[in-house]
Amino acid sequence: MVEFSDDSMRPRYQKLIEELRCPKCQNQNLADSNSAISVELRLQILRLLEQKNSDEEIKHYLAERYSDFILYRPLVDQRTWFLWAAPFLFALSAAIAVILLQRRRQSDIGEYDSGRRAAMSAGDRERLDQLLNTPSEPR
């Protein structure tokens, strides 16, 4: 059990060790890992919290030493903006594709209809208009 001088640090500590990755073990965070380095880093985070560092300062402190690898939630900077923006870009391009396809389909139907209409004889055309424009009588 970890002791804090101020209980408000407990949730912050918990969140930090869950969001920071163990440098030695690939798929574990500091909270889950019992490797020597994780124990050491948890202690160090506790020390930094007691020294009144902000969460951001602590993450920065560790990333400065252990590289961005240690952050499970990557920072947004010029190397990672695409990673963060990609889901939105993909959703946007899918939406645009759907709209374009829909439009093309509608104009295709329109072209097909006017083509058929032009091929009709004048009498048929008149009859068609008549049929289309008379509201059907309820049966």
């Binding site: 440098p23 030695k24 380095i37 050491e40 880093l41 160090q44 030493r65 252990y66 590289s67």
Partner: peptide, 12 residues
């Protein structure tokens, strides 16, 4: 204490 180790980013 491993303090220089942490400053260097030693993990093993």
């Amino acid at each position: 204490s491993g303090s220089l180790g942490i400053d260097l980013g030693v993990y093993g």
